[in-house]
Simulated assay, not measured.
Amino acid sequence: MNIQLRFFASVREKLGMAEQKVSLPEGINTVGEVRAWLVERGDIWAEVLTPGRALRMAYNQQMCEADTHISEGAEVAFFPPVTGG
């Protein structure tokens, strides 16, 4: 399955990229599994996307949870929580 990854704010800065097209291996079907797969890349990926780090996720530009199912051509985005006043 091919998807588009997007990274925002400090996640983008730490990874050094705003987006990336990827072909997922078999068995990755949810946003959380995408995150875990990226963490397995190690190095900066593991540091930025580790499960203990507070991150927001979006699927096709809608906020989502880790158990959200994905489909071919989807967009999955990661970004830090935002506060405002």
Rank of each mutant, 00 (worst) to 15 (best):
D67N: 12
I28M: 06
S23A: 15
V82P: 10
E47N: 08
A74T: 03
F78Y: 09
S10E: 09
P80G: 03
K14S: 13
P51L: 04
P51R: 05
F79N: 07
D43H: 12
S71E: 14
W45P: 02
A58C: 07
N29K: 15
N29G: 12
D67L: 09
L49A: 04
I28P: 08
G27C: 01
T68M: 14
A46R: 14
P81R: 08
V82A: 12
G27D: 00
D43E: 15
P81W: 03
M57I: 06
T50L: 13
N60D: 09
D43K: 12
I70P: 10
Y59G: 00
H69E: 15
T30I: 09
L24E: 02
I3A: 12
A36W: 02
M57H: 08
D43P: 05
T50D: 12
S23K: 14
F7E: 00
G42F: 00
Q4L: 13
F79E: 01
E72M: 12
V11E: 01
Q20S: 11
V48Y: 00
T68E: 15
D43A: 14
I44Y: 03
S71G: 15
Q61E: 13
L38S: 05
A18H: 11
V48H: 00
I28D: 08
E47T: 12
Q61A: 14
A46C: 10
E33G: 09
N60I: 04
L55Y: 05
R12F: 01
R35C: 02
E47H: 08
N29D: 14
T30M: 04
E33R: 09
V82E: 06
G27S: 01
Q4R: 15
Q62P: 10
M1S: 14
R56P: 00
P25N: 02
A18N: 11
L24I: 01
E33W: 05
N2A: 11
A74Q: 10
R56E: 04
V34W: 10
S23T: 13
L5M: 02
R35M: 02
G16S: 03
W37R: 00
C64D: 05
A54L: 13
T50V: 15
G27W: 00
E40K: 15
V31M: 07
P80I: 04
E19P: 07
Q4F: 09
P81C: 04
F78H: 08
L15N: 10
W45I: 05
A36G: 00
F8W: 08
E26K: 15
N60W: 08
K14Q: 14
E75D: 09
E33D: 03
G52H: 08
E33I: 06
F79I: 03
V11F: 00
T30K: 09
A36D: 06
I44G: 07
G84I: 01
E47R: 09
N29I: 08
V31L: 07
S10D: 07
T30G: 09
A58I: 06
A58D: 04
V48F: 00
Q62I: 11
R41W: 05
S71V: 14
S10C: 04
E33M: 10
N2W: 14
I44F: 04
H69F: 13
G84W: 00
E75K: 14
D67R: 11
G85L: 04
G73V: 01
P81H: 05
M63A: 11
P25Y: 01
P80H: 04
D43S: 11
Q20H: 10
V48G: 03
C64N: 05
A74N: 09
R12K: 13
Y59R: 11
M17A: 12
E26T: 14
E13A: 09
